[in-house]
């Protein structure tokens, strides 16, 4: 791959391991929280915060930063671990997740926590916010990009498609959104609850540039973002195929793990599986 060396990729993979372990520990400590999406998105959030995004944790409001809106706010645990490890606040604060008077609210609060662009948690609202940011960057000829994370279940919200139509119409080529395509929502499989497929075709029909990649493979993730950055006439949607709870096998495909905290035993075996997975990668 161009520009990104193997060593760099391995370094990112190492970081994603730490984020995953922290995610398990803080949700276990909080006794509640959304573990499945958080683990499944760990590779993508690592790629964003440690390679893709142009940002500066010492100056969270730096005007030229790339914006990143987390529309699926329930994945706060991976968001917070990525922010903490990139210096927005002390890593030691992670253990306060969901506790009384913590800055780490159950869903992200932009007034409390540096690095959070906007409060989310009510699904379907973030993509429109990203559109607003991208619109102004386009109008003012600013170079920064706007990224946005959405869930696949979240995509059932009508407001997602209002934003989709808007971005396509306005040719917001500075907007790079991605879908956490794990096929799981709270009540089960997205295709059984309220079918999303053909998902790529839907986005194409709304005049988006559509890419797809394995969202649990660092090299594929980085390549997808590289490609998206080169697009210059349409907004890009990257459909990242992920697994809920990856790489924890007992969470794979089990919707209960969308939002259940692991007990002591489950947390232990989750961490064991995570460690074994990274060991096997043989970095």
């Amino acid at each position: 791959m161009n520009n990104i060396e193997k060593k760099q990729i391995n370094n990112l993979i190492e970081i994603s391991k730490q984020l995953r372990i922290d995610v398990v520990n803080i949700i276990h400590g909080a006794k509640s929280g959304h573990i499945g999406g958080s683990l499944g998105l760990a590779d993508i959030f690592t790629a964003l915060y440690f390679h893709v995004l142009n940002h500066n944790s010492n100056d969270p409001n730096w005007a030229d930063r790339d914006r990143f809106v987390v529309s699926n706010g329930h994945v706060a645990p991976i968001y917070y671990t990525a922010l903490a490890h990139s210096g927005y606040f002390p890593v030691s604060e992670l253990s306060s997740l969901r506790k009384l008077r913590s800055r780490l609210q159950g869903h992200p609060n932009s007034l409390e926590l540096p690095g959070v662009e906007i409060s989310t948690g009510s699904l379907g609202q973030g993509l429109g916010v990203a559109c607003g940011m991208a619109l102004i960057a386009q109008k003012d000829k600013e170079d920064h990009l706007v990224y946005c994370s959405i869930g696949d279940g979240e995509t059932q919200e009508g407001s997602i498609w209002e934003a989709a139509m808007f971005a396509g119409h306005r040719e917001l080529s500075n907007l790079i959104a991605f879908t956490d395509r794990n096929y799981i929502q709270i009540d089960g499989n997205t295709e059984e609850i309220n079918k999303l497929e053909p998902l790529a075709e839907k986005w194409k029909a709304f005049n988006w540039n559509v890419l797809s990649a394995n969202g649990n493979d660092m090299e594929e993730i980085l390549n997808a973002f590289e490609k998206a950055k080169k697009e210059n006439s349409k907004p890009t949607m990257i459909i990242f195929n992920t697994k809920l709870g990856f790489p924890v096998s007992f969470m794979d495909g089990v919707s209960k793990w969308h939002g259940t905290a692991p007990n002591d035993k489950e947390a232990k075996s989750a961490i064991k599986e995570i460690e074994e997975y990274y060991l096997k990668l043989n970095l």
Binding site: A30, K31, S32, R98, G106, H107, N109, G121
Partner: peptide, 8 residues
Amino acid sequence: VGEDGATH
């Protein structure tokens, strides 16, 4: 509602 916080 508890831990989910303000949005919920």
